[in-house]
Design a protein around this nucleic acid. Structure first.
Lengths: 205, 205, 205, 205
DNA sequence: AATGAATGAGCGTTCATTCAT
DNA sequence: CATGAATGAACGCTCATTCAT
């Protein structure tokens, strides 16, 4: 990273930008895109409205930034896991664990993310944002499918369509995570539980 | 039914109401609640704005009507399936088939429905609508769980938490249906396919 | 009168018309012209909206009718009193008594009437109505002034400007009647009381 | 006063606010509350609609502000007069002079004021505003009554009910002022004239 | 003649965005 | 460079009026 090179001014700028994103995330995830005004975001970020427009072209762009940032964070973290060494079964298990962790640690962003992609559907704020997000999501699913593919070749998994397996894993884990988001006390986020249902009889042997 | 008793006037009224709902469904599912104006809906229904308000108290009510109608249609159809005679495995299979059929035949409404309930999350148009919908959805999941419970008792299924099984089945099937909704050519809606992944090794024996 | 000549149909028509005026008077005097809709009036008169338009060109005309009717009723009753035989002092006394009676018996209409003419001012629903009403009111004041004029000539009253005397009497009596309308329990409508203040000297010495 | 401390910005703000109030007063007093739109006021004030809402919460509040401002101005000026030193007769004379002056200098506001309080009646824009205004008006009348009471005790005035005397004075003066408002050429606003009629005896003998 | 469903102009209000300071 | 007052298009909604039945 080139953090060292940032002048005081630049650091202050970055700080401000981050502050805006934080304020916006809180508000958007609480009330939804259309029920949050730029004034409200400015007020929460303790800045003037005009300043918001110095950092983001418009409201949509600010929204997009939050979503892309989160999607990228998730994608890169989960990709990394899938690219590590180890057998495919272990990779999937770690993937599940990481996904659960990311979700629970970033609920606000997740809310927004799924409001947009709706676990597959979604009437997004803007079609472009939706497309962009879906593309990132799709890349993730493809990577997951590739791992299943490898696992199938190594006879770790039964010879099913790897993309479908990826889809199914995503579907189950999302369902459990959604359930938890709705009612955090129900403790559905246990990855072992998800694994048991998903794997126990799918795995060969 | 008392369809016979409808006078011409009443029939025309019903027709108009249906026309409004159709126009609204199309627009809402295409652009989302906040990006559709009452004028737009009126124009598409080839009516004056005022007429919309003769049938629906306000925009929200019109939106709610669409969602509740769909949710109820789905819920009653799927409940019926689960209440029919037959062993639990057959019931689940029929449930899956019916769900796929309902989805593919009501894509527009499904888009809206999941935009609201977000398969679990969702920053809804109005909290009341969300709650109402979620309650219907939850009832459905409970009914599904009851069938799994019965199946477990009869040793048809492995002794897992029945609610989790319901959640998982919903998760997987939604994932496949979403995938299809995004790209109808990919033909992911084959219920056999979903069953294979979900069941083959979950079922005892 | 030619009441005899009215056919059943005509009688029914008149009845309907009266019914509309009654309903409108009640509503207008309760909530004011702008806060009453034609639907509301129709509903209270137990008629269809369209029927209202058969009897009155539009909302304004309906309103005008009520006001002109009341103004004419008041004017003719009070004129009659002033034209009776008797000395001028007695006429004024009877005028006052009649005015108090008319007011207390037609509060609803009075409310409307003064809302329009505002005891002199008034931002009326329509300038034309205001002008028309004021003209009737002015005629009344002129007639009253003529009586004062006669009284002055007969040395019954001191030689003051008769129009001013008329104005003053109207002003005082209105003030007392308004006071009563606001709070009917305060019993300010005693004509003797008004007379005492109007006629007898206030300043000692 | 702290007028000195107003920065240029603050002065401009105040100017704008005043400008809005002026435009609104002109229009309201000309056409009445319901026949004036916010767009119209904005246009006359040479501002955008949105700007109106920066200064006043809504149309009603803007209306209320005008009325309360005027009522307070009148009340404080007239109260001051009644609280000055001097005998009661002199106070009433000065009161009358001041009232005439205030009326003639604020005709627009007076029109509105009496449209609301209707010199006693009035179907007001909002019950709350009416109540608030009437309370101010009533305070004024009470103060006037107190002066009459003192005058009666000092044998300056005949022993009549002081509140009724206040009511009568208000009634007469309003009648003359209304008469002048309708037709400014008739010169009815001469306070001497009002006094003569109010104070001296009308009936001969 | 009576009806009341349909109309659509026009209202009050909001809020993303701009730009003079 | 940050500010926030000003803008005005666009919204949801109402209601006087019309006209086919």
């Amino acid at each position: 990273m080139n953090n060292r090179k940032l002048s005081r001014k630049e650091r202050e700028q970055l700080q401000r930008r981050t502050e805006i994103l934080r304020a916006a995330l809180e508000l958007f995830s609480q009330k939804g895109y259309h029920n949050v005004s730029m004034h409200e975001i400015a007020a929460r970020a303790e800045l003037a409205v005009g300043t918001l427009y110095k950092f983001f072209q418009n409201k949509e762009e600010l929204y997009r930034e939050i979503l892309i940032q989160t999607a990228t964070l998730f994608y890169s973290a989960l990709s990394k896991v899938l690219e590590e060494n180890g057998d495919e079964y272990a990779k999937i298990r770690k993937y599940l664990r990481t996904k659960c962790k990311l979700f629970t640690e970033n609920i606000l962003a997740v809310r927004l993310y799924f409001a947009e992609t709706g676990a597959g559907v979604g009437i997004s704020v803007k079609k472009e944002i939706e497309t962009e997000l879906r593309s990132i999501y799709e890349q993730g699913t493809q990577k997951l499918a590739a791992v299943f593919q490898a696992g199938i070749e190594k006879k770790i998994f039964r010879p099913l369509d790897p993309y479908h397996l990826a889809l199914a894993l995503e579907g189950i884990s999302n369902a459990f995570l959604f359930c938890w988001m709705e009612d955090p006390d129900r403790h559905c986020v246990d990855p072992d539980l998800i694994e048991e249902i998903f794997f126990e009889r799918i795995r060969v042997g």
